[in-house]
Design a protein around this nucleic acid. Structure first.
Lengths: 108, 108
DNA sequence: ACCAGTACTCGGTGCTACTAAGTACCGACG
DNA sequence: CGTCGGTACTTAGTAGCACCGAGTACTGGT
């Protein structure tokens, strides 16, 4: 599937939030996870900018730990604000997808 | 539902395409339709910029007709390229939504 | 010594929805 | 007759987001 970038705007950040919410993890692994999921074109740079943004917004807690196979990793977990943001994201997601499905089915 | 704007990026244009595809219509009416659907914050300016973009991309055919209740209306219909673009949009939409639902359910 | 894989940073770009201000046409009401 | 609200379109500028590209740096294997 080619060039999903415009459609991912506003949702990719939510996806990263969801991944962090489900387990403590780090940028490189998040990228691999997104790639495995089917978002094959998402590259490291994109994920790292999202992570820095989440950090700036105060939605995550960061812990640096040595890796053994490379440079130290920055592990992320959601804090209370992050969990709130994640819930808001899913609420918006449900709202938008339901309306668009309605539109698609010709509903008025 | 507040501030869906980031999530609508890349999908609002597809919605407009779908509306035009289902019946010949014009900007003001498209805005009302989107508002009725639940996208209450979408305003005329946004829709008009999308319509001009669609025109520039050569996806629509435009016909100007007098209105009787105001200035003349610009009626839009999809041409072959527009129908192709609409099909591509729905294909991307299905792809993205299915992957995100999978992520949400913790699938790997 | 070099390279591939791992891991993060950061300045800059392009696309999109949105803002805001403007133009213009019409009917109704005082 | 002038004004106002509803209809209808245009356009210059803004902000946010995913992406690009180049750079830094740590590790183990050849």
């Amino acid at each position: 599937m080619d060039d999903l970038t415009e459609m991912l705007k506003g949702t990719l950040e939510g996806c990263v939030l969801e991944i962090i919410g489900s387990e403590e993890t780090y940028g490189y692994a998040i990228t691999r996870r997104l790639n495995d999921l089917g978002f094959t074109d998402v590259v490291e740079g994109t994920v790292y900018t999202i992570l820095l943004r989440l950090e700036k917004k105060g939605l995550v807690q960061v812990t640096k730990r040595p890796s053994g196979v490379g440079p130290p990793r920055k592990f992320y977990t959601l804090n209370a604000a992050g969990r709130g943001e994640l819930a808001t994201f899913w609420a918006k997601w449900e709202y938008v997808t339901s309306r668009i499905e309605k539109l698609r089915e010709g509903g008025r």
